[in-house]
Design a protein around this nucleic acid. Structure first.
Lengths: 340, 340
DNA sequence: GGATGCATTGTTAGCGATAACAAGCTCCGC
DNA sequence: GCGGAGCTTGTTATCGCTAACAATGCATCC
């Protein structure tokens, strides 16, 4: 009996037990073709018996690449980014990759570059950057181009491999639904203008109005918070001509609903409201919120596929995938009030 | 000119440029004491000139430990876990650690053990497990005990290094506030009973009622979702004797508010409501929600400190930290309606 | 002035895996 | 029966770093 702390078994231990060389063990582990079936089984048995697990650091050292995928995302509890992160981890784990997260406080060039560097230190096999603002793309311009990279929510003109959600299409659907309900026009509470998502949603809204020949009211500038929706709502609630509002996300819609309620304007009787994101709680707003759902898991899945293809050199590093959002109809939308 | 892909510089390159041995470079990098100041500067200059960055895989291989911290958490977009994760990344990054996330679909023994193993493969320096349910603790029982480990939200009786929020204290505060407002008793919509958080909140609620000599109504069992709060609300709304409700989280409170509103019961005039978590939107519920805030960043900070202390052997691996939550008063609480 | 000690630096050996090459074996065709 | 092809396996070098030990120089002490 050896009482020393049991060192976890290495490849040579397996080799000894199976009566082969460590190299043969390596071949079995990496599914090399030219190993006799009988040998393979013997090695497998030895691996199981010892509870051997390969040392990823050693592998990374010699191959120059790890089984790690880095994700750079904004450190936020916003529903969108958080969901995306969760979905991505899930997908990566299924593909046998670990996920290292480098969150940044702000989406400026310096922060992003720092997070990217930290990941490169870890010799990540690939990198996913959630880059919803222009400044994030800036940081990627001076990335070394031998690292597989996929951008989420970035600028189609500047990114190579990219997955985005068609924000404009979602916004168009929302706006069209309101117009179809009989509203003369639709107001919009926007997100921060430097976010691509926000810009896309505003564009979709505007183009739908223009296509329908409806008047385009001024954008009410907000950011993603409920507070900004509330502030917008306090203004809009006092304007009787406002009968339909499309907000850039659900949290804004929540704030808007509260402001409308405080001013005695009923939803959807007096004002119809549509949000964006379909947060789990949207169904329980007062009233239940009609909104646009983004399929975050589809985004994550697509992103991972693009990345893995690059890692294994199966695909050119330039491909762009667009995911379509879907409208979820609930009771916050109705016809405009009867004209008095 | 050499046109081959430029291999990123290694320690020997730095050593050659600085005119020292690679070992001296290593000493400079690891802040060993016995290096002459002048030499240190020369090495630093060479590092800067070459843009040298140490290879973490090589270091991990030889030391048997990486600059990686593993986090095991449930793959969820619940506000609590997501916030905790974000706060933790932030804190770890500041300490120079990368964070690898292993999310699990369900909190059962097998899933957790799997996630832990994947992290051990990566030779993580330490492990943080967010273990809000008993089954998660089970999985940790057969963890090798030479890996630094901190549990968040686990069972004090079974964990060594542990950070928790004093759920019971928060619940007591909430309940006492309602009693002080004049309510004869307080009803409770609970979380899933196998979550420690949920159990702690229920305990605090019950003990506050008992201490005040108030009647203890039956617990309305829910889970964390707004849907369960809504379901509970539809029942409670029909019971005129219910004038105060404490829900186990804010999302449930949202659902409850909607159910009350649908039944024409006004908040806080007819019913007072208190939630738990203080999600950013709580301020914009109808009406603004009184709730209990957990300081997630404090939890993360404390957890990381415990872990780093273990990693550097500065502290015994057994210490428990309890973070106190704070009550955030808003307008969803008022005196009970006048008895008719 | 030689022994002692400390600060500073270099040398060598490995960590655990993969890659490149070499070697043995079997099978085949002529 | 012999050479070559192809399958299977082993040997050796190597990735970039840290640990352990060795070696050097210089100040200090008796």
């Amino acid at each position: 009996m050896d009482l020393r702390a049991v060192r976890s078994p290495a490849m040579t231990d397996v080799a000894k037990l199976a009566g082969v060389s460590h190299q043969t063990v390596s071949r079995v582990l990496n599914d090399h073709p030219n190993v006799r079936e009988q040998t393979r089984l013997r090695v497998r048995a030895a691996i199981a018996e010892l509870g051997y697990r390969p040392n990823s650091a050693a592998r990374a050292l010699v191959t120059g690449r790890s089984q790690l995928i880095g994700i750079v995302a904004q450190n936020s509890t916003l529903y969108g980014p958080a969901s995306l992160l969760a979905a991505f981890e899930q997908a990566a784990a299924e593909a046998g990759f670990a996920v290292s997260v480098g969150s940044v406080g702000r989406m400026d060039r310096e922060s992003i570059a720092g997070a990217v560097e930290r990941h490169l230190d870890q010799r990540v096999a690939g990198l996913v950057v959630i880059a919803p603002v222009a400044s994030a793309d800036d940081a990627l311009d001076d990335m070394p181009d031998d690292v597989p990279l996929v951008t989420i929510d970035g600028d189609p003109a500047r990114s190579r491999a990219l997955v985005t959600v068609d924000q404009a299409a979602g916004a168009r659907q929302a706006t069209e639904l309101l117009l179809a309900a009989g509203h003369r026009t639709v107001w919009h509470v926007s997100g921060p203008p430097d976010w691509y998502d926000a810009a896309g949603r505003a564009d979709g809204w505007r183009s739908a109005l223009e296509a329908a020949g409806a008047e385009v009211p001024p954008v009410v500038a907000g950011e993603w918070s409920a507070a900004s929706g509330y502030a917008a709502g306090r203004m809009l609630a006092r304007m009787p001509e406002v009968t339909a509002v499309f907000t850039a996300n659900d949290h804004q819609a929540l704030g808007l609903l509260r402001a409308l309620s405080e001013h005695g304007r009923r939803v959807p009787d007096d004002v119809s409201v549509i949000g964006f994101d379909d947060v789990p709680e949207a169904e329980f707003f007062i009233p239940p919120l009609t909104t646009v759902r983004q399929a975050f898991d589809a985004v994550a899945q697509a992103g991972l596929e693009l990345l893995l293809a690059q890692i294994s050199d199966e695909a050119p590093p330039a491909e762009q995938i667009v995911i379509a959002p879907t409208l979820v109809a609930r009771s916050s939308v109705g016809p405009p009030p009867h004209r008095v």
